[in-house]
Design a protein around this nucleic acid. Structure first.
Length: 585
RNA sequence: GCCGGAAUAGCUCAGUCGGUAGAGCACUUCACUCGUAAUGAAGGGGUCGUCAGUUCAAGUCUGAUUUCCGGCUCCA
């Protein structure tokens, strides 16, 4: 997928197209005021104040038409350097431009003229509107001015622009294909999960096939963690409100929690995360520095009252199972342990063939005193420690201000789903805050009580979200070890006793090897059964006819490939076992 | 939560000017026993998301509501 922001030519072209769109909007809505119209990874957009007008799909078509007219006119685009005084005069009727100008310095201001439209802009732009003719407006939305829900709503229109009609067409094709990869569509097609109005919004349920995949993922990560010294626990999905008041989560996140249940004078909530439970497990008995690091892990069921507009299949629901762990360390152990977590993250990605990810060092915004635990010294120490460790390990990352958790900085590993915004798959968070709040201690070598440091980390993130991502990456063609049905046996005939015996023998040999196998002995045409097995995305489709039975062979098709391969019976069973054991992708 | 769009059979969708519901797939039954992506025939299946309103008459028009979709905000 092209990146409009990084490709310089596309960047200039799309930015110019945003201006052309603004010009068209100005023609149709003479009172329109314009906020910003930047190029983003997926194209361009412009945020506009159209007074009381609210755009719908039809209006977008009208704007497209007007844009085509402008592009056809072939008017030229001119750059003009202007003084701040001039700028303030030109845009005096536009409060949005005045707002922008208030932060700009004299001598560094330019604007662009194209026919009857002038816009404040740094540029550069193409020199003629006709170069912007291969465009498409792809979506629109109401957005809060400056992203603040207390501000007025502006109209945002997104578009894309390309040098040639062929490139535009190819891009639109890609957008269509992304819809086919959407995990919600795959989940429905493959009977993996469902949702139900009566159960409730944002509460997806895993069907038998989906739960098989889910269990494989759970077993995979638990086994991996066990080898690394993680100790798995099971804790309840509810806790007292006081538990979350102690941790500080209550103050920061209560509006995103299911509201409290009052029972016998006590107040409980469904838990939105597991840190407090794990803190209390640590506090269950005294600890020596010799025991640390202590790695408490849990595939933990959590509930968050996410805003209705943010729900998205199993990628973001109101219940999910976190692949969570809290690691209690001494300050000296931070680096080694963060390194260990990073190694675990990247070895997991290797197992799944995930290569397209982005690491972010998420820091606090010191100006946002409300969101973050107020202790400058603690933050400086934590951020510095995490940054140093990442540098030492040699991880490439970008720093982002204001993305930290309220209790500490974190390393986030983000990926891009088929549709929508980047999501965080893995995280490793450094926390000097909660251990103190829970008054956790260990006895150090000098017999003094000290406060441990906690690493919060998730590798698969949540099992649910990871499954969504892996479905989209593989387009539902899961690797054999994850596939709900791993082998489908198709007998050529189903009324031949000898053949049936042979099919049964193969089936039981595979059962004995712990392979998920099904045979399709319905009295349907062979081609029909083959088609159905292909649609179900079964990795191995074994074809058994007279020929195979007589020669002790198995013919099979692998993962949608057209060719059929024939091997010996035992060889086939061994091959599948090997495939599953090595988690080949 | 906010802005816009959508909702018709299990699934994908058609339904014209308001006149009482349609296809393909799936399902059931029967026949066919088949060599690599759809065998044929017959049959069952719908309070047109829900609640109001307008009308002689509403899947179709109006309002509210629920859910879903695209964005925005949020994401411990």
């Amino acid at each position: 997928m092209v990146n409009f922001k990084e490709d310089e030519n596309l960047h200039v072209l799309n930015h110019s197209c945003a201006h052309m769109m603004a010009q068209a909007v100005k023609h149709l809505y003479p009172n329109a005021k314009f906020w910003v119209g930047p190029v983003v990874d997926e194209g361009f957009y412009y945020d506009m104040d159209l007074g009381d007008a609210v755009l719908n799909d039809e209006d977008i078509e009208k704007i497209e038409k007007e844009m085509k007219k402008i592009a056809k006119s072939g008017i030229k685009i001119y750059r003009r350097e202007i003084s701040k005084a001039e700028a303030l005069e030109i845009f005096k009727d536009d409060p949005y431009k005045m707002d922008l100008l208030s932060n700009m310095e004299d001598g560094n201001i330019s604007c662009y003229d194209q026919g009857d439209y002038t816009d404040l802009c740094r540029g550069p732009h193409v020199d003629n509107v006709k170069l912007c003719r291969n465009f498409k407006l792809v979506k629109h939305s109401g957005v809060y001015w400056k992203g603040d829900a207390s501000n007025q709503v502006l109209q945002r229109v997104y578009g894309v622009c390309f040098p040639t009609p062929e490139e535009l067409e190819a891009h639109l094709q890609l957008l269509e294909e992304a819809k086919e990869r959407d995990h919600r569509k795959i989940g429905k097609d493959m009977n993996l999960f469902m949702s139900d109005d009566l159960v409730g919004r944002g509460l997806p349920m895993f069907l038998p096939n989906g739960y098989l995949v889910w269990q494989e993922l759970e077993n995979y990560i638990r086994t991996k963690e066990q080898k690394l010294g993680y100790q798995h626990v099971l804790t309840p999905c509810v806790g007292t409100v006081d538990l979350y008041k102690t941790s500080g989560h209550w103050d920061h996140y209560k509006e995103n929690m299911f509201p409290p249940m009052e029972v016998e004078g006590e107040s409980f909530v469904l838990r939105p995360m597991n840190c407090p439970h794990h803190m209390r497990i640590y506090a269950n008995r005294p600890h020596s520095y010799k025991e640390l690091p202590i790695r408490i892990a849990e595939i933990a069921h959590d509930f968050r009252f996410e805003s209705s507009g943010t729900l998205k299949g199993i990628e973001r629901g109101r219940h999910f199972c976190q692949n969570d762990s809290h690691i209690f360390v001494t300050p000296d152990q931070i680096k080694d342990e963060v390194k260990g977590v990073c190694d675990l993250i990247f070895s997991t990605y290797e197992d799944f063939g995930i290569t397209d990810y982005r690491c972010v060092l998420s820091l606090r915004d010191p100006a946002d005193t409300k969101k973050y635990h107020p202790d400058d010294e603690m933050w400086n120490k934590a951020e510095q420690a995490l940054r140093e460790t990442l540098n030492e390990i040699g991880i490439e990352y970008t720093e982002e201000i204001g993305e930290a958790a309220f209790y500490g900085p974190k390393l986030d590993v983000n990926v891009k789903p088929a549709i929508g915004n980047e999501i965080t798959l893995s995280t490793c968070q450094l926390d000097f805050c909660l251990p103190a709040k829970f008054e956790l201690t260990y006895i150090d070598a000098d017999s003094e009580k000290k406060t441990p440091v906690v690493l919060h980390r998730a590798i698969l993130g949540s099992i649910d979200r990871f499954m969504a991502y892996i479905l989209e990456e593989t387009k539902g063609n899961l690797p054999t070890w994850l596939a709900p049905v791993q082998v489908k046996i198709l007998p050529i005939k189903n009324d031949d006793d000898e053949l049936n015996e042979y099919v049964k023998k193969l089936k039981y040999a595979l059962y004995d090897a712990n392979v998920r196998v099904e045979s399709d002995d319905r009295s349907e045409k062979f081609g029909y059964k083959m088609r159905e097995a292909q649609i179900q995305k079964v990795p191995y489709i074994a074809v058994i006819g007279k020929k195979e039975a007589e020669e002790g062979n198995v013919s099979f098709r692998l993962h949608g490939e057209q060719e059929t391969v024939t091997v010996k019976f035992d060889e086939f069973v061994e091959m599948i076992k090997e495939d599953i054991a090595t988690k080949k992708h």
